[in-house]
Simulated assay, not measured.
Amino acid sequence: MLVIESPQQLREAIKQFKQQGKAICFTPTMGNLHQGHLELVKQGQKVAPISVVSIFVNPMQFNNADDLKNYPKTLDADCQALEAQGVDIVFTPSSDVIYPNGLAVQTYVEVPVLSDCLEGELRPGHFRGMSTIVNKLFNLVQPDYACFGEKDFQQLAIVKQMVIDMAMPIEIIPVATVRETSGLAMSSRNNKLSEGDKRKAPLLAKVMNQLAIDTQNNTTQHSLLIRDACHVLEAGGFDTDAIHIVDVLTLQAVTPETKQAVVLMAAFLGSTRLIDNKVVSICTNKDFTL
């Protein structure tokens, strides 16, 4: 496995694989890897013989300087896990390499509408930073495929749209959320939970699954379903941040034409923010109310 810090060295390595006619699958990460990340790599290895993973904590997508400073860095362990998984290249650039002139004058990429709603309202600039770094990494790696987890549902939707809008010859492969045996979605943030909070955490997925069933059955107004879900979470020790039921394609309010909706969950346990989501098919009609 090659561990590369220089974009030029990365380009040279990629060029050799391209000359050999080998397809490349790329998985961008911010490190602190867990089984969910490795599942992205595994799925990518099913479609392409060459696997490239990046580890880069992107300062452009952080709203809080302390969050950036405190983001866990486990590069040695990450590289060991990736090598065991059979990854060919790990790209580990520094911020100075990626943004040599600083963030203030950095060209950026922004996907309108999809980036402005939901999480985009709560974290201004976050998705612009994400789109920019993914675009830049795509330019460097030139992959044929790229794997993104469905747990970050809005991020996945934005990347899909960016690839379409920018006419990139890259197939985006969505990878299902990997869960603990308790049902909790795997996340680097789970490591921050206290033992007590780890016991409470599975409630988020349980409430989400029930909310998805209720949404699919379409038994009442979505606002009432969300209100009840918030009450259950808060009774279980959560501080609900946001729950949404939106159209899968537009990430906007469900309409009579909506075929699939996605239940999006975000809630705090202590200072740790957990997210999850579930897609459901729904039957709407002209009399449907939110």
Rank of each mutant, 00 (worst) to 15 (best):
M1D: 01
I4G: 01
S6L: 00
L10P: 14
R11H: 10
K18E: 05
Q19T: 05
K22Y: 02
K22Q: 14
T27M: 00
T29C: 06
T29S: 04
G31V: 03
N32R: 02
L33S: 08
Q35S: 12
G36K: 03
Q45M: 13
V47E: 11
A48L: 00
I55L: 06
M60I: 10
F62E: 04
D66I: 06
N70C: 08
N70K: 14
L75D: 12
L75A: 08
Q85C: 13
D88N: 15
I89R: 02
V90F: 13
P93N: 12
P93C: 08
S94L: 09
D96N: 12
N101R: 11
N101S: 12
V105F: 13
T107R: 15
Y108H: 15
E110I: 11
V111C: 04
G120V: 14
E121D: 08
V134Y: 02
L137V: 01
L140C: 06
D144W: 02
D144Q: 11
G149D: 03
A157V: 05
I158C: 03
Q161H: 09
V163N: 04
A167P: 04
I170C: 12
I172T: 09
P174G: 10
R179V: 13
S182N: 09
M186A: 05
S187F: 10
S188Q: 09
K192I: 00
S194F: 03
A201C: 05
A201L: 01
L211K: 02
N218V: 00
L224D: 13
I226N: 02
I226P: 00
I226K: 07
C230R: 11
V232R: 13
E234L: 07
E234K: 12
F238V: 13
D239A: 11
L249Y: 08
L249F: 03
T250A: 08
A253W: 03
V254R: 07
A261H: 06
D276L: 05
D276M: 04
K278Y: 06
I282G: 08
D287P: 01
F288G: 05
L290I: 08
L290N: 14
